[in-house]
């Protein structure tokens, strides 16, 4: 299965390369390093969020509230910044990330302690989070001129050729690689997703593991909330509306199984990049926004079919090997 997944990641890399190649045939400017950096930076928020969602999906859950969480954290940070421009950025970021983690923890607690299906829990909290933004802001926007320069400038500041938001994404990717491959918690996300019952019998608390997945997903949503609000220099009730589906789409394209237990950091990031390239390339080649939505949708369906086929193949291989193993003395 590992080999298949590696295979899957190679296919994604190839697909992205072909896509970029095709577009640059007609628009050579697309492949210019500066534009590539821009595309990557454009995708950084989606990539960060897809990683958080990946944890949740691995444990056989789903988080529909990530975009609403992002919007609520972004609004709180924007309002804090507008009201108290003196709050240093690290502190403000810490507040945002903690708030996101707290909101994620609410999802996690409901799933863990009350044993409610995550799709229902997060559908509810999604609406609650959006409603809270309205209550907090009375429906008012926080506009660019109300935000401090430091608040707006940080993600765009360039370090070693890349904007800080890209560096943040790279750091988050690095942390996730460490988390998934080098910590007991990362291992237990996989165990719980592959076989929750056997995980219980191995001493892993399934609910608690899910709680951590939701909390981490919330934390990255909080971080993404800052990046989003600072990048577009505006905060209002509906920012990132519908983005939760893009996040899930990035995961699906990246080969993270909706059935849980299968998925890698590389897959989630590549899935996000693929969507990022598609979203950036289609306007360049003059595809109408409506056709863009249809094309993005088609890509997702193709990815799902691909996933389903992969998992079927896996079944056949297991049977053959199992038979062979049974015959062997």
């Amino acid at each position: 299965m590992k080999a298949l997944l590696k295979h899957r990641e190679l296919i994604l890399v190839a697909a992205i390369a072909v896509l970029i190649g095709l577009i640059s045939l007609r628009f050579p400017a697309f492949i210019a390093p500066r534009n590539m950096v821009r595309v990557f930076d454009d995708t950084s928020i989606l990539a960060i969020l897809a990683l958080g969602q990946m944890l949740v999906i691995l444990t056989r859950c789903i988080d529909l509230s990530m975009a609403a969480n992002l919007a609520l954290c972004g609004m709180v940070m924007a309002m804090l910044n507008a009201a108290f421009p003196g709050i240093p950025m690290p502190l403000l970021l810490a507040v945002g990330i903690s708030l996101g983690a707290g909101l994620g923890a609410i999802n996690g607690l409901l799933v863990w302690k009350l044993d409610i299906p995550s799709i229902v829990v997060t559908l509810g909290t999604m609406t609650i989070f959006r409603g809270s933004i309205f209550l907090l802001s009375s429906g008012q926007w926080v506009n660019a001129h109300q935000m401090s320069d430091a608040f707006k400038a940080l993600p765009r500041a360039v370090m070693l050729g890349l904007p800080v938001s890209s560096w943040i994404a790279i750091a988050v990717i690095g942390l996730f690689v460490l988390l998934m491959s080098r910590t007991p918690l990362g291992r237990s996300f996989y165990a719980v997703g592959v076989n929750p019952t056997a995980s219980v019998y191995t001493g892993i608390d399934v609910g608690r593991t899910r709680f951590f997945a939701f909390t981490i997903a919330g934390a990255v949503a909080g971080l993404a909330g800052y990046l989003w609000v600072a990048r577009y220099a505006v905060a209002y009730v509906d920012i990132a509306g519908g983005f939760e589906l893009q996040i899930i789409a990035a995961c699906v394209i990246g080969g993270i199984s909706i059935a849980g237990g299968i998925g890698t950091v590389g897959g989630a990031v590549l899935g996000a990049l693929f969507l990022g390239v598609v979203n950036n390339a289609l306007p360049v080649i003059n595809v109408s926004p409506f056709a863009q939505m249809a094309i993005s949708g088609a890509v997702i369906v193709i990815a799902v079919i691909f996933n389903a086929r992969n998992e079927r193949k896996k079944g056949r291989i297991i049977l053959k090997k199992a038979e062979k193993a049974e015959v062997a003395p």
Binding site: L178, S181, T183, R187, Y190, A191, N195, A198
Partner: peptide, 25 residues
């Protein structure tokens, strides 16, 4: 058995505390 995971991860799963150092596997 956690059938989707490799043999070594199945065997080490309840002993991860022992095989890891300062929180890292």
């Amino acid at each position: 058995a956690i059938t989707g995971l490799p043999i070594f991860q199945n065997i080490s799963l309840p002993s991860l505390k022992k095989t890891s150092k300062s929180g890292f596997l």
